[in-house]
């Protein structure tokens, strides 16, 4: 029975991925991508990796989906009913590029084949007893937390996690670098909606509480900084959509501090104990649990702020100067 469910799930995920890539209309692609993310999250749950499943559902499906929807609005300012003959445009593109497509297909195919071979080898070579699981379990009491995934992410391999926080910050910087181009014709109508306001007011504390719970629960079970950050980031995005852009309303220095405090504290802490003869990112054992909780909290705040800032910067509610002039 479970083989049947897993098989169906695998087929569903691959089918949705293909459909999302091949869909003729962008809007269809985006919504199929949502469904694909959920199928993938379910697959992670079936594999027993609940941490990954939550992150997949929250970041890959949720946050990326929101960004895709936002991008979709840019491509079609008022959601026109149909794109003008998308297939014809596609055919023209294919005809013009037949030669270059063929040329690019060969290395692409070779690369994909190589990747598949490596993946197969990795699956084949999985050591008995699940690789480093035993080692991680053995040193769990020394890590300061009780959940092996959190122990690996924030203690044994803290360097990786530190870099991941940096990657999100880099993404935000890239968006800052190219941002501010987009201007909307219409200011956001939903901002004045009383019902949306009420719902946002209701969901803000709920999301905050649930984020805090996930953050703290990361010590003993699935959860942690990234999952909590997405929920807190969702608060920022909801408030932004409701017309209250918190990230733009707080002073600039405070914004910069919030955005960088997670990565900075992590870095300082990582290097602080090098002076005492420890390895990089090695914490004193007595305080490891507390330090990890502080790192996770600050990292979650930074990531949440970065996610909110990414969305807010891509979705600025400015009135088009030309439009207002023409009305006047």
């Amino acid at each position: 029975m479970s083989v049947l469910i897993d098989g169906l799930l695998a087929i569903l995920a691959i089918y949705l991925a293909l459909q999302s890539l091949l869909a003729p209309r962008l809007i269809k692609s985006v919504f199929l991508f949502f469904a694909f993310g959920l199928a993938l999250a379910l697959a992670w749950v079936r594999l027993g990796a609940v941490d990954v499943a939550i992150t997949e559902a929250a970041i890959a499906s949720g946050f990326l989906g929101v960004l895709f929807l936002d991008a979709l609005r840019d491509f079609s300012p008022a959601f026109p009913a149909k794109q003008k003959n998308p297939e014809a445009a596609h055919n023209v593109l294919v005809k013009n590029n037949t030669k270059s497509l063929l040329l690019s297909r060969i290395p692409l195919g070779l690369g994909l084949g190589l990747f598949l071979l490596i993946a197969l080898e990795a699956v084949w070579k999985t050591p008995e007893g699940g690789g480093l699981t035993a080692a991680a379990e053995a040193f769990l009491p020394e890590s300061g937390v009780e959940h092996p995934v959190t122990a690996v992410l924030l203690n044994f391999r803290a360097y990786d996690t530190w870099l991941e926080i940096g990657v999100i910050l880099m993404g935000l910087l890239a968006i800052f670098a190219v941002g501010g181009i987009k201007v909307y014709r219409k200011p956001n109508m939903a901002a004045q909606d009383p019902m949306l306001r009420q719902v946002i007011m209701f969901f803000t504390p709920v999301l905050f509480l649930f984020g805090a719970f996930l953050l703290y629960f990361g010590k003993t079970g699935p959860g942690g900084a990234f999952q909590a950050a997405v929920l807190w980031g969702a608060i920022g995005i909801l408030l932004h959509l409701g017309g209250k852009s918190i990230i733009e309303e707080i002073p600039r220095w405070l914004r910069q501090l919030i955005l960088t405090v997670g990565i900075l504290f992590f870095l300082v802490l990582g290097f602080l104990f090098v002076a005492g003869g420890n390895a990089l990112f090695e914490y004193p054992r007595a305080y490891a649990g507390l330090l990890i909780l502080i790192i996770e909290t600050l990292a979650a705040i930074s990531i949440a702020a970065a996610l909110t800032a990414i969305f807010a910067n891509l979705n600025q509610m400015k009135e088009d100067p030309n439009e207002t002039e023409s009305i006047n």
Partner: peptide, 21 residues
Amino acid sequence: LFTLLASSTSCYLIARFQKEQ
């Protein structure tokens, strides 16, 4: 309960957007 709240709100927003269009 939360799903009910979220889905009825998004339903209302979509309907309102469509009506304005």
